[in-house]
Amino acid sequence: MSNSDDRTQTVSGKAAEASSTDKPDGSSRGIIVLCFCIGLVVSLVFGWVVFPKLLYSRKQQPIDFNHNLHAGLVSNGCESCHFLRDDGTYSGTPKLAQCIDCHQDVQGNSPEEAKFVEQYVKKGIEVPWLVYARQPDCVFFSHAAHVKAAKMDCVTCHGDIGDSEHLKVYEQNRISGYSRDVEGASLIGFKKHTWDRMKMDDCSECHQKQKAVMGSVQTQKEGCFVCHK
């Protein structure tokens, strides 16, 4: 018992000494403020500039496909490669079968095409395309509803990918594993175009505008099983 009392006395004694020597005068207060400001700036830069870069890993597509070039070459527009099947499912990214008629052998002198023919066509390996718009596993999305029934344009949800000359970098969230095109380019949720972000609320926002039927008892919005599976 007496031991612990002694100890507390010595500790408080030291604390008293320390506070008497460290009493801040004008200049050291300035240093404290300066340190605080530097710290603040460093954290802001880290939070707004460094962290978003760290959060997303950047991946190149296996082959840099040129949409603009092919638009004039194929016979049936986008549907030559991205088409709806009769049962309403979507073909999605093209398979080799859609390329093979033209790319059996190298056509021009672009290194990308040579790589494509060498590494994939000749070996019969499908290209592992990275899908910018890929939704989580639990989401049901229907191109038939939007493209066929509602006659919507691809640009509304995908931006100008269909008219681009190069495939952009695919950015994947290291924590969630989702694509940045789904989560939105801006971390604070700022959105300029309809295709900037495609999260649950973005789907719902348009559906509500389009007067979709609200069946959910809990949320008075759409039933969860409209978009989930």
């Binding site: 008892v217 039933g223 099983f225 409209v226």
Partner: peptide
């Protein structure tokens, strides 16, 4: 959730 459009009780696992 209960969907008044289908009468199905949904379960969203996530």
């Amino acid at each position: 959730d209960y969907d008044m459009q289908t009468g199905i009780v949904s379960q969203i696992y996530t």
